[in-house]
C-alpha cells in the first residue's frame, strides 16, 4: 500500500515538473533520465530479481525502435500522437521476439545466459546494418517529425517516458507481491532447490524476461519517435546495456527503487557532461570505472547499504533507550525479527 502511494506521489511530482522547468535542454535531460529509469527498472526484473544478468537488452531497445520507426516510415508529416498509441503493440511484438531466445538461453546457467545475450546484441547490430531491404542499413530510417508546438515539443515524449516508468514500477511492484515474484527470488537464491520444491522456474524466468524486454522495446519506440531518425549504431548500442546494468547495480539490484535512484544519479550526470563537454569517448571510460567502483565498494548498491545503516542505527538507539529504561540489555530477539521483516523487499 505504502509502495503504491509512493509510486503515485513520485509520478505526480514528475508530472508537474514540465511546468516548472521549461528550458528545452532541461526537458531533454529529464526525458532521457526517465527513459533510463524505466529501462533500469525493466532490466531489474530479470537481472535483479531473478539474478540473470542480461547484457543484450540494447538489442530489444533497438528492436522496439526499429519496429516503431518502420511502422511510421511511410506516413506523411506529423503523425501526431498515433505513434504513442501503438506502443503497447510494439511492446508485445518485442516480447514475442524475445521469448524464443530467452527460452533457449535460460535453459542453462546465468553465465551462459550472459553469453547468449551479449552475442545477441552483436547479432542485432549486424542485422540492423545488413538487412538493407528493411532497415536501410547504415542510412538509417526516418520517422515523420511530429507537429508539436516547438516551445513544448519535448512534453509528449516526456509524459510517454513517465508513463513507461510508472508502468515498469507498477509491474515490478505487482510481480513482487505475486507468486511470480516469490518464484524469481527463489530462483536467484538457489535455482536447483527451487525447481526441486516445485517452483515453475522456466515459466517464471520467461515471464519476467517478457515483461522486461516488452518495456525496453516500448522505451525504444518512444526514443525513435523523439529522435525521428535512427541509425543502427545508436539504436543497438552496447552503451545502453551498460547504462542499465550500471544504474541497477549502483542503486541496488533486486529493490524496487534502486534502479530509479541509479538512473536519477547517472543519467543526468551523463547527459549534462555530454552537453558541456561533448566527449563521448569518455563515456565508456566513465561507465567502466564507475561500474568497477560500484562492484568493489558498494556491491549491493546504495539503497540496501543505506537501509542497513539506518536499521542498525535505529537498533542501537533502541538498545540504548531500553538500557536506560530498565537497566538490563534489550530484547535483541525482537530486533532481529524486525530486521528480518525489514529485509523483505
Amino acid at each position: 500500500m505504502r509502495t503504491a502511494a509512493a509510486i503515485a506521489a513520485l509520478s505526480a511530482l514528475l508530472a508537474v515538473f514540465p511546468f516548472l522547468a521549461t528550458a528545452p535542454w532541461v526537458m531533454t535531460i529529464a526525458l532521457f533520465t526517465l527513459m533510463y529509469a524505466a529501462l533500469a527498472s525493466a532490466w531489474n526484473l530479470v537481472g535483479g530479481y531473478a539474478g540473470y544478468p542480461s547484457l543484450g537488452h540494447a538489442a530489444f531497445f533497438g528492436l522496439g525502435a526499429y519496429t516503431e520507426a518502420l511502422w511510421f516510415n511511410h506516413h506523411g508529416i506529423g503523425a501526431g500522437l498515433t505513434p504513442f498509441a501503438v506502443l503497447p503493440l510494439v511492446g508485445l511484438a518485442v516480447a514475442a521476439a524475445g521469448l524464443p531466445v530467452a527460452w533457449i538461453a535460460m535453459r542453462t546457467r546465468a553465465d551462459v545466459f550472459a553469453i547468449v545475450t551479449i552475442t545477441l546484441l552483436f547479432v542485432a547490430q549486424t542485422l540492423a546494418y545488413n538487412l538493407r531491404g528493411i532497415t536501410h542499413g547504415a542510412q538509417g530510417v526516418a520517422m515523420p517529425v511530429p507537429d508539436f508546438a516547438p516551445a513544448t515539443f519535448e512534453r509528449p515524449f516526456y509524459y510517454a517516458m513517465l508513463a513507461l516508468l510508472v508502468l515498469a514500477l507498477l509491474l515490478s511492484h505487482a510481480v513482487l507481491r505475486s507468486r511470480l515474484g516469490l518464484a524469481l527470488l527463489a530462483i536467484r537464491a538457489d535455482e536447483d532447490k527451487a525447481r526441486g520444491v516445485g517452483v515453475p522456474v522456466g515459466t517464471a524466468k520467461l515471464g519476467a524476461f517478457a515483461l522486461s524486454v516488452g518495456i525496453t522495446g516500448m522505451a525504444g519506440g518512444v526514443w525513435a519517435y523523439y529522435l525521428s531518425f535512427i541509425y543502427p549504431q545508436f539504436a543497438v548500442d552496447p552503451l545502453v546495456t551498460v547504462a542499465m546494468v550500471l544504474m541497477v547495480f549502483l542503486g541496488g539490484r533486486g529493490t524496487l527503487w534502486g534502479p530509479v535512484l541509479g538512473a536519477f544519479i547517472v543519467a543526468p550526470a551523463q547527459q549534462y557532461l555530454a552537453y558541456q563537454y561533448g566527449a563521448s569517448q569518455l563515456y565508456l571510460l566513465g561507465y567502466a570505472a564507475l561500474l568497477v567502483l560500484v562492484m568493489l565498494v558498494l556491491p549491493r548498491g546504495v539503497l540496501p547499504t543505506l537501509g542497513d545503516r539506518y536499521r542498525s542505527r535505529q537498533r542501537r538507539a533502541r538498545t540504548l533507550r531500553a538500557d536506560v529504561g530498565t537497566g538490563v540489555s534489550a530484547d535483541t530477539g525482537g530486533d532481529i525479527a524486525a530486521d528480518v521483516a525489514g529485509e523483505q523487499p
Partner: peptide
C-alpha cells in the same frame, strides 16, 4: 555474489580497454 559480479567486472574491463583504445 562473486560469480555474477565477476562476469560484470570483466565486462567493465572490456569497456575500459575499449575506452582507452578509442582515446
Amino acid at each position: 555474489d562473486a560469480p555474477q559480479l565477476s562476469l560484470l567486472v570483466t565486462f567493465a574491463v572490456a569497456l575500459g580497454i575499449e575506452g582507452v583504445l578509442t582515446l
